[in-house]
Design a protein around this nucleic acid. Structure first.
Length: 285
DNA sequence: AGATCGCCCTGCTTGC
DNA sequence: TGCAAGCAGGGCGATC
């Protein structure tokens, strides 16, 4: 399940292998893969055809490629199981191939959007004056963005009547943090996932942000997490950061800090993994 | 309007 | 063995 580091790996792959090329043909093989393009698959294909792809960009888990000729962008999200692959044009179709983009050049490769569960998708959107696809204007900057405002994040945490893991997963507060890295950063910060944010001190916020950045940077250095074979980067290579996980998926295994068996708790139709000794729950209200 | 919750989807794993 | 239920979960829209 791709999170920010994996998506950044994909962005770099797109920049290297796709940016600057001109679209020749587009095949939409599954309508759900372009469901955010409200005008439909045929319109998506027709509008994209003939355009030159700009430099791939990313905010949180969203990817986009500017289309300078029409002041719009090709927006993509990998969802749970999406892959953007640059494949030889004669490679056999993947089982879950949803969209194919062929180019007007002689490089012999094409861009493929492959997605088993179809939570992800591609679409075209006008840009805001800042150059952002308009439908993701509400997505906050991510913690690896140099313009991320730590002080504003702290202020927002103090104002919210919520708990720390909910806040980390709220893409309007901070983007790019998913369930895996939320649990990892909370473990490193020795914070229980139900800790209210309203009483956070400035140093506590700073430590949490530091751990979020560390865990993401480490994953990025290793080419992204891939303990799930569904995730493959833009050229089909898997990462291996899963060997470094301290919390996620480690139910009943000893805490890497104190040896206490880790726990898994149902949480918001998901799971939270934590050490019951290092990450004490807050006192009941 | 901030917070919460259900839903979308498919394939692998688990349990009876 | 076979089938059903459980699980994975990002993001959006409905609801309170």
């Amino acid at each position: 399940m791709p999170e920010l580091p994996e998506v950044e790996v994909v962005r770099r792959g797109l920049e290297r292998w796709v940016s600057g090329r001109t679209v020749d043909t587009v095949d939409v093989l599954h309508p759900r893969a372009v469901r955010r393009h409200l005008a439909g698959g045929p319109d998506f294909a027709a509008r994209l055809t003939g355009l030159r792809l700009g430099t791939a960009m990313r905010r949180g888990k969203y990817l986009w490629i500017p289309l300078d000729e029409i002041s719009a962008s090709l927006l993509g999200h990998l969802g749970m199981s999406g892959q953007l692959l640059v494949q030889p044009s004669d490679a056999p179709d993947e089982k879950h191939l949803r969209v194919r983009v062929r180019f007007a050049d002689d490089l012999g490769t094409e861009l493929r959007f492959v997605d088993q569960r179809t939570f992800g998708g591609l679409s075209l959107h006008d840009n805001t004056p800042e150059g952002l696809p308009d439908v993701i204007a509400h997505i906050a900057r991510d913690p690896l963005d140099p313009a991320f405002d730590d002080a504003a994040f702290h202020t927002a945490l103090r104002l919210r009547r919520t708990t720390v893991k909910r806040a980390l997963l709220d893409q309007s507060l901070i983007s790019g943090v998913g369930n895996i890295y939320a649990d990892e950063a909370l473990w490193r910060s020795r914070l229980h996932y139900e800790r209210p944010t309203a009483a956070f001190t400035r140093p506590r916020t700073a430590e949490l942000l530091g751990h979020v950045r560390d865990v993401m940077s480490e994953a990025l250095d290793q080419g992204g997490t891939s303990f799930d074979s569904l995730y493959v980067n833009v050229n089909g290579e898997s990462g291996y950061f899963d060997r470094s996980l301290d919390a996620y998926g480690r139910e009943d295994q000893p805490c890497h800090r104190c040896g206490t068996p880790m726990r898994r708790r149902p949480w918001m139709n998901r799971s939270s993994y934590y050490c019951p000794r290092c990450q004490r729950p807050p006192r009941p209200a």
